[in-house]
Nucleic acid binder design. Structure first.
Length: 84
DNA sequence: CATTTGACGCCAA
DNA sequence: TTTGGCGCCAAAT
């Protein structure tokens, strides 16, 4: 799948199973570039597609990170799905 | 087109 | 263990 890094990242995030979480780095690796962890966040920020469960993407430190709809909302979603 | 910004990650002190 | 600094990439200005 040779496309934009953006599309790859979105595809990877969309494939994250419910009740599971992935770090930005893991997503970056899955997308093909382990050093693009930062870019992953930038892509999520610019992506408003509800089909992309970006709330399942957290930091490698175990911190939730951020969310374009409010970090609190993201945390609640994770709790609801059983990821936390 | 060049520069800055930022939902990040890793290493050294 | 906590803090500071560097690297890396995509999007915005």
């Amino acid at each position: 799948m040779m496309v934009n890094f953006r599309s790859r990242v979105l595809a990877v995030v969309a494939k994250i199973p419910k009740g599971s979480t992935m770090s930005y780095k893991e997503v970056a690796v899955a997308a093909g570039n382990a050093k693009a962890s930062r870019a992953v966040g930038a892509i999520m920020k610019t992506n408003f597609n509800p089909d992309i469960p970006c709330h399942r993407v957290i930091r490698s430190d175990g911190k939730v990170g951020g969310y374009n709809r409010g970090v609190q909302k993201k945390i609640e979603r994770l709790k609801e799905e059983g990821a936390m």
